[in-house]
Simulated scan of single mutants.
Amino acid sequence: MEKISFRLSVVDDYPPVSTERVWAQKLTSGLFRIRNIPFYIMEVSLDDEVAVEVGTEGEYLFAEVKKESGNSTVRIIFFEAGVSEISAVLAAIVEMGGTWEGMSKRFFAVNVPEGVSLDNMLEFLDVCTEKEWLDYEFGMIRQ
């Protein structure tokens, strides 16, 4: 596994970092398959195959997506009112066919695989938003 760096555009202090690094598997083709769910990146989703450039210090820098996985990325932040619901919400996401990774106790990135209904996932998150448990934003959406 290797790390690939993505440069981010920071607007009004968001995201809180100017670079995100994700794990990727080097393929025999020379491309890299993204192996973790991005937290801030808008250009890729889990399992996309990407080309890289080599930076001045030998690091891998994202160049472009070469093969889309069909997966979509959604990011969730839980509010105080939703802290007690985090486990149930994440379990429901998994039950619907999604996967997730946590950045902190309240911030999660969700992968919605190709073939899983993004509409159903968003309807569920909308209900949670109406209850003021959380808010969400889109990363790369492909469904």
Rank of each mutant, 00 (worst) to 15 (best):
K105R: 07
T56P: 06
D48G: 11
E80H: 04
K105L: 12
T99L: 11
I41T: 14
P16F: 07
L90G: 14
L122T: 10
E114P: 00
G139P: 10
S45V: 06
A88H: 09
E85M: 15
E59I: 02
E132F: 10
L8F: 04
D126P: 05
M42L: 14
D12F: 06
E80D: 14
Q25W: 09
F108E: 08
L134D: 02
L27N: 11
V110L: 13
F108Q: 05
V50C: 08
M140F: 12
F138Y: 15
K131G: 05
N111F: 00
F39A: 11
V83M: 13
I37D: 02
S72Y: 12
W23G: 13
D13E: 15
D13Y: 03
R7Q: 15
E59T: 13
E101F: 02
M103Q: 10
I4D: 07
T73N: 14
L46Y: 14
S5R: 15
K3C: 06
F39M: 15
S45R: 08
K131T: 00
F78N: 13
L125Y: 12
D12H: 10
F138N: 13
P15R: 01
N71W: 04
K26F: 00
E123P: 04
N111T: 13
G139R: 03
E114M: 04
G55L: 08
V94I: 06
Y136L: 03
R35Q: 15
I76R: 08
E49P: 03
T56M: 07
M140L: 15
A81K: 14
E80S: 00
T129P: 05
I86T: 05
L118G: 12
V116P: 04
F78C: 13
T129R: 15
T73H: 01
T99Y: 09
L61G: 00
V44E: 06
P16A: 01
S117H: 08
M1I: 14
E64N: 10
W23R: 13
M121Y: 03
A81M: 07
S18I: 03
N71C: 13
I86F: 04
Q143T: 11
L27I: 01
V50D: 06
M121W: 05
A91D: 15
L90C: 12
Y40P: 08
S29P: 03
L61V: 02
S5H: 12
S5P: 00
A81C: 06
K26R: 15
N111G: 03
A24D: 01
V74N: 04
D48L: 01
A92T: 15
R21T: 05
E114G: 15
N111H: 06
I141A: 06
S18P: 00
K67Q: 07
P38D: 07
I86P: 01
I141L: 15
E95G: 00
V50H: 02
I77W: 01
E57K: 15
G102D: 07
V74R: 10
